[in-house]
Design a protein around this nucleic acid. Structure first.
Lengths: 230, 230
DNA sequence: GTCTATAGTAGGATAGAC
DNA sequence: GTCTATCCTACTATAGAC
């Protein structure tokens, strides 16, 4: 194999990244130790030297995925609580979850599969990922919603937290139904248009007035802004 | 075992219904033939007599679930295309998917798990179920949306098909995140309130004016109507 | 210290013979 | 129905190569 000899840390990292697609596509049970060794280009014995049990690789993969997606959306933290920020955040949620801008599509798909598998198991990975990567944004979003209500851009009584999760769920479920190779749900639209409609649906769902949507939601502007900070 | 001797058809049916929770909770690979036999209260050989391969049981379960859920929502077919009907349909989607009125909770959970597993595999089950149980309602819903637009209750330009799927996806994803025993997402609300908020979010997302929502959406009335026809 | 090769245990899945 | 054979799996242990 190309790799030659690696030190302990390097080898561990190599095994982890090589094996992610296996666990993502086959699940825990169907990923055999033989397949793992083959995919890594090393002997089974070596794998066992670094990870005494198959389960250790699985949990390590989850940790790796949690660390890795340390998103750099930090610029959102500095945003003023406003309707414009709220629109930007909704756009970001849908685009980063469903459109996977500037991520390797294969890598993104593997991550999603691992996430959905977790939800069919104990949900540990999903829970810790959510707590560390999504939950922290909620207070910020709530403030934006507050600001939008104050400025009269939102004229419905909504639960901010639930509304955010509904938006999140639409994006997640669009992913879920796009996982299989065949068409499960026929949306009859291109991916970009689906994302655009989803954002509009969510903005209306959040109670934004049509004037506010027209004023603050411009897909092209937001996209260029989004790309700039990614 | 209680069952005693059954003829071929009865035994097949008994095996199928006994084994659903196994495949739903453990997946294909982790459901061993031994477990299957134990759960059915028969020998492994007898199982193999009726289903030559383990896979045959799995596919039979999918067929069984597709047939079984021949929902009796047929009264919806007779509804006039109107805003009121649209609201009723959105209510029905959220309630039948997320609230599982008048279904055994365990049975409902098994069905969901099978569905989500299918989406991580080839998606055959999910695709055929969708085609036979959800897709047929779409033309009806589209007509209701048309009627609502005409009567001025909807004042946004939306894609009817996508909007319906977004509503569907919210309900499905609420299920998905409720599958694990631990709390993955903290909604901070009771299930019924979540459903109520989801319906309101969807109605606004569909572009319904707040007047129309106030006029046509009354949870208690709809619930009693829904229960009556179930 | 990194790695391979090989041999082997214990147990489960599948399936045929009886 | 039981018994048995075959294959595959997770995992261990050792001996030695670079």
């Amino acid at each position: 194999m190309v790799d030659g000899r690696l030190n302990s840390e390097e080898r561990k990292a190599q095994i982890i990244s090589a094996v992610i697609p296996l666990f993502a596509n086959l699940g825990f049970k169907e990923t055999t130790t033989k397949l793992i060794a083959e995919k890594c280009g090393v002997s089974e014995a070596l794998v066992y030297k670094h990870f005494p049990r198959k389960e250790d690789i699985y949990t390590e993969i989850h940790k790796f995925c949690c660390d890795k997606s340390q998103d750099d959306k930090n610029e959102l933290t500095n945003m003023e609580p406003s309707t414009q920020s709220l629109v930007m955040i909704i756009f970001t949620i849908v685009y980063s979850i469903y459109m996977n801008i500037e991520k390797d599509p294969e890598e993104a798909k593997n991550f999603k599969r691992l996430m959905f598998r977790s939800l069919l198991e104990e949900g540990d990975f999903a829970a810790s990922f959510h707590k560390s990567h999504f939950e922290p944004w909620i207070p910020k979003i709530e403030k934006c919603i507050e600001a939008a209500v104050k400025s009269g851009d939102i004229n419905a009584t909504i639960s901010p937290r639930l509304s955010i999760y509904f938006t999140h769920h639409i994006a997640v479920c669009l992913n879920l139904y796009s996982l299989p190779n065949q068409t499960v749900v026929n949306y009859e639209k291109e991916k970009e248009e689906i994302a655009n409609e989803a954002i509009l649906f969510a903005l209306r769902g959040l109670g934004l007035s049509s004037q506010a949507i027209q004023q603050y939601y411009n897909p092209n502007t937001l996209l260029s802004f989004f790309k700039k900070y990614k």
